[in-house]
Simulated assay, not measured.
Amino acid sequence: MRPEFVYNKIVEELMKNKSVAVATIISKEGSGPRDIGAQLVVTEDGVKYGTIGGGSLENIIYEEAVKALREGKPKLLKLALRRDNIPSDAIPTNQLCGGIVQVFINVIHPAPRIIIAGGGNVGKPIADIANVIGFRVVVMDEKEELANPLRYPYAEKTIVGKLPEEVGKLEFGKNDIFIIAYGEVETDYQVLKKLVEMKFPGHIWALCSRNRCSWMIKRLLDEGYDLKDFKGRLHMPAGLDIRSDTPEEIAVSILAEVICVRKQCNIPVNSMDISNILIK
Rank of each mutant, 00 (worst) to 15 (best):
156 E>K: 09
79 L>F: 11
110 P>T: 01
123 G>R: 01
90 A>H: 01
98 G>Y: 12
92 P>T: 05
66 V>K: 15
81 L>M: 02
120 G>W: 10
104 F>V: 00
151 R>C: 06
96 L>V: 11
45 D>K: 14
127 A>L: 04
96 L>A: 12
48 K>R: 14
111 A>Y: 13
72 G>E: 06
106 N>M: 03
79 L>N: 02
44 E>V: 04
141 D>R: 04
147 A>L: 05
77 L>C: 10
53 G>A: 08
101 V>R: 04
58 E>C: 12
128 D>H: 11
122 V>Y: 04
73 K>V: 10
150 L>C: 05
88 S>L: 14
56 S>N: 15
68 A>V: 00
84 D>Q: 14
124 K>G: 01
50 G>A: 11
99 G>L: 06
61 I>E: 06
153 P>N: 09
136 R>N: 14
102 Q>A: 13
99 G>V: 07
59 N>H: 14
90 A>P: 02
132 V>P: 00
151 R>T: 03
80 A>V: 03
66 V>D: 04
62 Y>T: 00
37 G>D: 03
61 I>Q: 08
124 K>W: 11
78 K>L: 08
42 V>Y: 03
97 C>V: 01
101 V>M: 09
105 I>D: 03
154 Y>V: 00
102 Q>K: 15
159 I>W: 01
54 G>Q: 11
149 P>Q: 02
138 V>H: 00
110 P>M: 08
89 D>P: 06
44 E>G: 08
82 R>W: 11
114 I>T: 06
130 A>S: 09
107 V>M: 05
90 A>W: 06
108 I>R: 02
130 A>Y: 09
136 R>L: 12
147 A>C: 09
122 V>S: 03
71 E>K: 14
118 G>F: 10
127 A>G: 01
108 I>G: 02
96 L>N: 13
146 L>W: 06
109 H>I: 03
147 A>R: 01
124 K>S: 04
146 L>N: 00
127 A>W: 06
144 E>V: 06
150 L>A: 12
61 I>T: 03
115 I>L: 12
150 L>N: 13
78 K>R: 15
158 T>H: 07
113 R>D: 03
141 D>M: 09
63 E>M: 15
132 V>Y: 14
86 I>K: 08
120 G>S: 11
59 N>Y: 15
73 K>F: 12
47 V>F: 13
108 I>L: 13
53 G>R: 01
84 D>R: 14
137 V>G: 03
84 D>A: 14
124 K>T: 08
